[in-house]
């Protein structure tokens, strides 16, 4: 029995490792290309067999020079700074405004509450394409085209998905806590900031993480609104790099690593928030 179950385990491991390869190899290849000199990348000598080919996947010796070279070809450091500015502004604004609105929907009694909540939920089904042209015209009329503001201002008004998540969370907090503060004469605002917000930290962290990833990844916003190369965020800068310097694979992969590695590091630091956040997304259905 035990040898049989051991063999069973071994087969399962083998299957998992084999299935893993297509998921892992592209990442390995991205990192290894970023460390190869151009001559190695364009080496045309055909490998004799599959094993020899696998041997060429890793660089003969790491060629770190690609990174400073990439930073000189386009200002990736500036792009990174722009991305960070956008991320910080959007995370702070979206999380705070969503929390305020979510508290209103979760804990305050007022006429029309259910109606407005339904309206808010239905806006999630509205595709961005429908609103993008009038919103673009508005920002253009305001003279904000080319600045970061069109990519930040919408966050000031709350995000429907975050409001939904936070409302669910606020509803689980016992009413007695708020009631006790109310008896002591605290205003709703004080109850919200002093009692509710500190208790909602895990849910706020989930929203902050989602917003951070969204802004970090956002390509469409900068594509519409940013035309000055000094204001490109990483997502847009990387695409521009690719379309202008097509054949420089090593530098392009160095850029892709600069763009990807921080997210992977973030994942290892905030694994629980990642996994729980994604799981809740699915179970709200």
């Amino acid at each position: 029995m035990s040898t049989r179950s051991n063999a069973h385990k071994l087969v399962t491991h083998a299957v998992l490792i084999l299935l893993c390869l297509p998921f892992v190899l592209p990442l390995v290849w991205m990192a290894s290309t970023s460390l190869k000199p151009e001559t190695e990348i364009y080496a045309t000598a055909a490998p004799a067999n599959a094993l020899e080919y696998l041997g060429t996947l890793l660089p003969a010796r790491p060629h770190w020079q690609n990174y400073p070279d990439a930073l000189r070809t386009v200002p990736f450091a500036t792009y990174l700074q722009n991305t960070l500015i956008l991320c910080v502004a959007n995370v702070v604004f979206a999380v705070l405004s969503s929390a305020v609105v979510a508290y209103g929907f979760a804990r305050l009694q007022f006429r029309g509450r259910e109606f407005w909540f339904m309206v808010m939920i239905s806006t999630m089904a509205l595709p961005g394409q429908v609103t993008m042209i009038p919103v673009f015209t508005l920002f253009r009329e305001l003279g904000l085209y080319g600045t970061f503001l069109p990519l930040i201002i919408p966050s000031l008004f709350g995000n429907a998905f975050f409001i939904f998540l936070l409302r669910q969370f606020f509803r689980t907090i016992p009413e007695e806590l708020a009631e006790a503060a109310r008896v002591d004469g605290a205003s709703e605002w004080t109850i919200f900031t002093r009692v509710m917000l500190p208790l909602a930290k895990p849910a706020l962290a989930t929203c902050a993480l989602f917003q951070f990833l969204h802004t970090w990844n956002d390509f469409f916003g900068p594509l519409l609104y940013i035309d000055d190369p000094d204001r490109y965020p990483l997502a847009y800068g990387l695409q521009q790099f690719m379309s202008s310097y097509g054949g420089k694979w090593a530098q392009l992969m160095a850029g892709a690593c600069i763009f990807t590695v921080p997210i992977i590091i973030l994942f290892f630091f905030a694994q629980k928030t990642f996994i729980q956040g994604i799981s809740t997304t699915g179970s709200k259905a």
Partner: peptide
């Protein structure tokens, strides 16, 4: 891991592989 790689990076990497 691949699912958290930014979309633009994924696209660039696939263009390469």
């Amino acid at each position: 891991l691949p699912s958290i790689v930014p979309v633009v990076a994924t696209s660039v990497v696939f263009l390469w592989i």
